[in-house]
Design a binder for these strands. Structure first.
Lengths: 141, 141
DNA sequence: CAAGGACTTTAGAATTATTCTAAATCTTGA
DNA sequence: TCAAGATTTAGAATAATTCTAAAGTCCTTG
């Protein structure tokens, strides 16, 4: 029971939040790390299936929730419809093109602390999106 | 055709974006103004129905979209699931309690300009949410 | 090793949120 | 007044997510 501890960071992180390591969870996390384009749960499902054809829809949803709870992944809700997922845990904000749907991360300097703090509110995390047109779409318009 | 122009700000704003004034749109907007608790489209529908029983679901959705396009209302996506709507067009951010779901606006000082600007990206608007626990829920925990 | 328990996965059903469709109605300008 | 275009409506359709029940896995204890 002791020797599996050092498996890797990923497995440790799951464990400390009370989750077990499973191949499905590894696979979902790998999918997110491999192509960092902020896929939806369904896109993750499709990609995960390529190497693990028997994985189910529900597992992908459950896993994404678990990873969010572990602090391994961020859930991003940029518009109505499907949530997107992002394994970049650095402090950053999302630039979102309302035309083509492209999303990209922009690191955030420390001064995000400029946010006012209503008394008593216990901040968990900030969620900052910038909507507009990406360079390409802006040109075309 | 001329004398309706000065109806009110609301109607003007619709017109300048190519929308017509309709009683349904007025009603939906009134609902948002009367109770500023960031209702979902469905909650708006229920409230609107009280004084306008024949209003339809689709109209509420269409209207909310129209109001967002006019710049009269903001759409807020704080979590998975239903979008919420907010008639406060001042620069502000949303504090959201992940436990009880309460949302409140906090005005934002001018220094929101601190946001980095990737070259070529044409910013339309910022969308800033702060997740955590409201004072009440933080106490209980 | 066997049994029990907790956690996880799976397929598919169910639910929720939103969008679409087609027909009816309304408004506006010619 | 008429035609075009916008709007509304009920209900169907779609999309996104959650739920359910059964089966599988892994660990711990006897």
């Amino acid at each position: 029971m002791v020797e599996k501890k050092l498996d890797n960071k990923f497995s440790e992180r799951l464990n400390t939040s009370g989750f077990r390591f499973t191949p499905q969870r590894q696979r979902v996390y790998d999918v997110l790390m491999q192509k960092r384009d902020h896929p939806t749960a369904d896109e993750v499902f499709v990609r995960a299936k390529k190497q693990m054809p028997e994985i189910s829809h529900a597992t992908v949803y459950n896993t994404l929730d678990a990873l969010v709870k572990c602090g391994l992944v961020k859930q991003v809700q940029l518009q109505r419809g499907a949530a997107r997922f992002c394994p970049n845990m650095e402090e950053h904000c999302h630039y979102y093109c309302d035309k083509c749907g492209e999303v990209f991360d922009v690191p955030l300097n420390k001064n995000s602390a400029m946010m006012p703090s209503p008394r008593g509110f216990k901040v968990d995390h900030y969620d900052i999106a910038v909507h507009g047109l990406c360079a390409d779409c802006a040109k075309k318009k």
